[in-house]
């Protein structure tokens, strides 16, 4: 039986991260995967479990800013912002010294979750690398080891995958 995340993030943080990841890396149907399709937020959740307490606190604080800044500057929730408002928000968060590192941290985790070619153990579509035509015979000997992620450790029996591919 599939054991569903989040395992480590609070439900609230998980939902806001899921939204951020989808904004950062949108998809477009089955031929163009995005963060929500491959489960980028689940990668971040498992990686959160590997972090030190200091790192966890930095990420929690960063997520909180993504909730606070939309209210502070637009009087709205992040989920209610239109595309122009999101652009302005992200620019503000990147240039404001008070939020810059948090913005970059959350963005980096989204990028690692998607562009590492991570996909949920039960995902059946194409991942980032296949979509962007990265890899192939130019990288012999590649071994993607996902066993450091709790989501792969918990679900290996349901997928038949050992955490390595």
């Amino acid at each position: 039986m599939k054991v569903t995340p989040p395992y480590y993030l609070s439900a609230e943080d998980y939902e806001i991260l899921k939204l951020i990841a989808d904004i950062m890396i949108p998809g477009n149907g089955p031929d163009e995967p995005g963060a929500s399709a491959v489960g980028t937020v689940n990668y971040i959740d498992s990686e959160f479990g590997n972090m030190s307490e200091t790192e966890k606190e930095e990420l929690r604080s960063g997520i909180a800013l993504f909730q606070d800044y939309p209210k502070k500057f637009f009087g709205k929730e992040l989920s209610d912002l239109n595309q122009d408002e999101i652009s302005a928000l992200f620019k503000k968060m990147h240039t404001d010294p008070a939020s810059r590192l948090s913005f970059l941290l959350v963005r980096s985790l989204c990028i690692m979750g998607f562009y590492s070619d991570y996909t949920d153990p039960w995902y059946d579509g194409i991942g980032a690398w296949a979509w962007m035509n990265y890899g192939g015979k130019g990288i012999p000997g590649l071994n993607k080891d996902w066993s450091f992620l709790e989501i792969y450790r918990r679900n290996k029996n349901t997928t038949g995958q050992s955490g390595k591919e």
């Binding site: 950062m24 999101i86 620019k91 990147h94 963005r107």
Partner: peptide, 13 residues
């Protein structure tokens, strides 16, 4: 500014 969203996908394609 760091690239994100549709523009990021366009470039990485």
């Amino acid at each position: 500014n760091p690239v994100w969203g549709r523009e990021l996908k366009r470039i990485t394609k």
